[in-house]
Design a protein around this nucleic acid. Structure first.
Length: 298
DNA sequence: GTTTATTCCTGACCGC
DNA sequence: TGCGGTCAGGAATAAA
């Protein structure tokens, strides 16, 4: 399930193929994913150079030389595959990949040339089609409906206890829902919220506003949560993300952070907090499974 | 305005 | 082996 670390892993895998590369061809194999693919998609992308590939929250953003940007979201099951091609005098703009080798869930294929990796085929695969791609003028990228209400990047310098205290000050909902809210902190999903709450010893059911400032100072709990979020995301990126059913790196290799989960999908197993004798429980919040230890998370 | 529930989709998994 | 049912979840949308 692509959350921030998985999307960042994908971005790093795609960058050598895409950044600075010219799109030679685009094969759109179905009209839509979760939403319709952009009108005249191939016309607007082929011939453009990708000047940068960046990430905002769980979105990948390819900035094009045409003054448009391509916003991509992996949804639940989206992945990219990168395959380098040899220099063999192929005709630009014509597809050379073997269609017989594509799977039913390969929905968009980019052929690119001129990135650090050289000529390459980049294939977007998404069995559940929860992902999407939209295009928007680069000048107004941040006013796009998908972008404009996204909250703070948790790995930037701005996230600390004081900011969490402020963001959560008037939130009557529980910590789990508040942390999943992309308009507050961007990029966290079900897995990393569970892990960050366990690391910070905070109950997912706790009302978010209880982390707000006390006597003008951010609470120790808010500081612990901020530290835990940064730590778990940083470690997960270093591990290439978490591979459950869906996520893989662009090379096809799996991430391995799933082996470092302390609570996620460990219902009934012993809590790993030192000296804690509790066990991991599961409950449903916001229609999602929450894994936590009721003994050490308060 | 804020919070919660529903919807989209298919593969994996479970029990019979 | 096969079939039906359930579950997983990011974000838009609808509803409360």
């Amino acid at each position: 399930m692509p959350e921030l670390p998985e999307v960042e892993t994908v971005r790093r895998g795609l960058a050598p193929a895409l950044e600075g590369a010219r799109v030679e061809a685009l094969d759109q194999r179905r009209p839509d994913l979760r939403f319709p693919l952009p009108d005249r998609f191939a016309d607007r992308v082929v011939g453009a150079t990708i000047t940068s590939l960046s990430r905002r929250a769980k979105y990948l953003i390819a900035t094009l030389s045409t003054d448009e940007s391509l916003i991509m979201h992996l949804g639940m099951s989206g992945s990219f595959r990168v395959a380098p091609k040899g220099e063999d005098g192929q005709t630009p703009g014509v597809f050379h990949h073997e269609r017989s080798k594509l799977s039913a869930h390969d929905h968009v294929v980019f052929e690119v040339h001129g990135g650090a990796l050289g000529p390459a085929t980049v294939t977007y695969n998404d069995p559940r089609r929860f992902g999407f791609m939209v295009m928007t003028p680069s000048a107004s990228l941040h006013e796009h409906p998908l972008m404009k209400s996204i909250g703070i990047e948790p790995l930037g310098n701005a996230l600390n206890g004081a900011l969490i205290a402020r963001l959560f000050a008037d939130k009557r909902t529980n910590l789990k829902a508040a942390l999943l809210d992309q308009s507050l902190i961007a990029g966290l999903g079900n897995i990393y919220v569970c892990e960050a709450l366990w690391r910070s010893g905070l109950a997912p059911t706790r009302e978010a506003s209880t982390l707000a400032k006390v006597d003008g100072s951010p609470t120790v709990k808010a500081e612990r949560l901020a530290d835990a979020i940064r730590a778990v995301l940083t470690e997960a990126i270093a591990a290439g993300g978490s591979s459950l059913r869906d996520h893989m790196q662009t090379s096809g290799e799996l991430g391995y952070f799933q082996h470092a989960f302390n609570v996620y999908d460990r219902e009934g197993e012993p809590c790993r907090t030192p000296r804690c004798r509790g066990q991991v429980e599961r409950l449903v919040q916001s229609n999602r499974s929450t894994f936590f230890c009721a003994t050490c998370q308060r």
